[in-house]
């Protein structure tokens, strides 16, 4: 962030004899900048959320069991908020989750995929189960009442809202996939535009 300023100053003094102390200072800054995002910190395609407070939820799975995030401790979780009537983003995200599991090979069994509906009004447990299992029988659909859904979304800073259309309504919603490590810590947000391979690269830092 501060690099443009020192560089401008350096440029201004360039015609004069270089000041060795300033030179040393500048190379130290450059070195610091390098190590800050150097090979030690793995570069993510998604957003690094480590250091952010971990979210949680109080919801029901499609068999009616009460579920919270800690129930899935011991294995990394990929978490997505969506709705089954979504024509576009949600099937694409879940299809990518299927591809990710294929690419992970033997490590896929370590990964848990959770889908939280932001449209519990229309997404009954039956629809939610049929929908998630149509992608992968191991994907878990979660739903709650309006208040529980709002609390779960807020906890992960997920935005959603009902939008009226001519005959019905649709949902705007955050299209990020959250990665939570085996210790229940929020780590990464995978962007919708990331390919399955880019997601796998990011997931490898957590698995």
């Amino acid at each position: 962030m501060h690099s443009p300023l020192p560089r401008a100053r350096f440029g201004a003094t360039h015609s004069h004899a270089p000041d060795p102390r300033r030179r040393l200072l500048l190379s130290s800054i450059a070195l610091l900048a390098l190590t800050g995002c150097g090979p030690d910190a793995p570069k993510l395609h998604g957003m690094d959320l480590s250091g952010m407070p971990s979210g949680d939820f109080q919801l029901q799975d499609t068999d009616g069991r009460e579920r919270k995030l800690a129930d899935y401790a011991g294995q990394p979780v990929m978490l997505f908020f969506g709705f089954t009537q979504c024509p576009d983003i949600c099937p694409t995200a879940l299809t990518r989750a299927v591809e990710i599991k294929t690419l992970l090979g033997a490590d896929a069994s370590k990964l848990r995929v959770l889908f939280i509906t932001v449209d519990p009004e229309r997404d009954t447990p039956e629809i939610l189960r049929a929908y998630t299992q149509a992608f992968d029988p191991d994907f878990v659909g979660l739903r709650g009442n309006a208040e529980q859904t709002r609390a779960a979304a807020q906890s992960f800073k997920v935005f959603y809202q009902k939008v009226a259309t001519g005959s019905s309504y649709t949902m705007d919603h955050t299209a990020l996939t959250y990665v939570i490590d085996a210790n229940g810590k929020l780590r990464i947000a995978l962007r919708h535009q990331q390919s399955a391979q880019e997601c796998v690269d990011d997931l490898r830092t957590v698995l």
């Binding site: 024509p87 576009d88 935005f159 259309t165 005959s167 705007d172 955050t174 299209a175």
Partner: peptide, 20 residues
């Protein structure tokens, strides 16, 4: 279907928005 609508999807700041 009972109703048919034309929609446009747009992604804004990682939020999916759908409009008729």
């Amino acid at each position: 279907a009972k109703h048919v609508e034309i929609h446009e999807m747009a992604m804004q700041d990682n939020v999916m928005k759908m409009r008729q």
